[in-house]
């Protein structure tokens, strides 16, 4: 797979913006609150990237909130009750969610279209109610005052310093989220342009035809759903660390719907769609905060207008897409 020259320039520019330009601009303007916003955008776009992958195999996933919540709880319980290092809990939370996704996915991935959408929506509610009912999750009170992430070192060499000694915790979290977001989307890009990615696309177009020429559709579906849930779990775990608390209501149904909206808005045919969609939706919502009680009205009206004018996502605009077609 050869990257074209302008692709390399584009990626380089993007990395420069998020790792150098943004911190510098925030430093100059003194708007430290933007770090929290941008960190959230990065984390939410990781979760949305997962949802996007399930869209890629032709399934509408409205259950990412369930996996983000699960990931957050797994990390929180490990950190608070078993004193595990936070850095270790990130992959554990992700893998736990992936395992849950395999178990749940085997039966429910047989469902299609609206049926799958509805069952995943129900899954979000199941996660919330489970968190309320289990003794280890501490019910409606949730788990709070979770310590900040500690030091990560290999053989005495400090890779990441203890967050409680870092001068600017917000900046540290921003870098953490940004690095993970870049890794996540680089991975997704690689995946989509690999053999598995092409097979996934065949699933999206015609599942029977794909399986008739020997594609193991059941296996691919579960793999895609597990990766999606892995990403959901990772983003949930880091969210827990930032807010230093987790409650059953941390990821409600609205979040699951938002993850789906992010993907739609960015455009389902584009790997970087979910990132753009998340950015637009999150910032749009924040900017509209100034309009007070009309916030939701204006926000949803804009959303509806966008769908009316661009039903195939913002990235389907011609300036983004020189080939002109979505596929």
């Amino acid at each position: 797979m050869m990257l074209k020259r302008n692709q390399i320039i584009g990626v380089g520019f993007f990395l420069f913006v998020i790792f150098v330009a943004v911190p510098w601009l925030i430093h100059v303007s003194g708007r430290w609150d933007f770090y929290y916003t941008l960190t959230s955008v990065a984390l939410l776009s990781i979760a949305s990237g997962g949802v996007w992958l399930t869209f890629y195999i032709g399934r509408i996933n409205i259950g990412q909130g369930a996996f983000a919540l699960t990931g957050g709880y797994v990390a929180a319980i490990l950190v608070v009750k078993y004193d595990v290092s936070f850095w270790l809990t990130i992959p554990i939370a992700g893998l736990f969610c992936a395992a849950v996704a395999v178990i749940i996915g085997l039966p429910i991935l047989r469902l299609r279209g609206v049926y799958f959408a509805m069952i995943t929506l129900v899954l979000t509610e199941v996660a919330r109610l489970t968190a309320l009912a289990l003794p280890i999750t501490n019910g409606a009170k949730g788990i709070s005052s979770i310590p900040l992430p500690g030091e990560l070192s290999i053989l005495g060499l400090t890779l990441i310093p203890d967050f409680s000694t870092v001068a600017n915790v917000k900046l540290a979290f921003y870098y953490l989220a940004a690095v993970l977001m870049v890794l996540c989307f680089a991975g997704l890009y690689r995946l989509v342009n690999s053999r598995i990615g092409h097979l996934c696309r065949s699933l999206q177009q015609n599942e029977e035809l794909a399986s008739s020429i020997g594609v193991n559709t059941a296996y691919l579906r579960v793999i895609a759903f597990a990766i999606s849930s892995f990403l959901g779990g990772v983003s949930g775990a880091i969210f827990m660390a930032i807010s230093r608390s987790i409650y059953p209501a941390s990821f409600p149904v609205k979040d699951s719907v938002d993850f789906m909206l992010n993907c739609f808005l960015g455009g389902l045919g584009y790997v970087f769609g979910p990132m753009l969609g998340t950015f637009m939706i999150y910032f749009g919502w924040d900017v509209l905060f100034t309009t007070g009680k009309y916030q939701l009205l204006i926000y949803s009206a804009i959303l509806i207008l966008l769908i009316l004018t661009l039903p195939n996502g913002v990235l389907s605009l011609r300036i983004f897409n020189k080939r002109g077609t979505a596929k």
Binding site: I60, V257, L261, F264, L265, Y299, S300, I304, I307, P311
Partner: peptide, 20 residues
Amino acid sequence: SVREESTMLLAAGIAFFLDA
């Protein structure tokens, strides 16, 4: 729309709108 799922996005948008 190219994919019929776009209607779900619209439906979700309408749900927010009616809530507002």
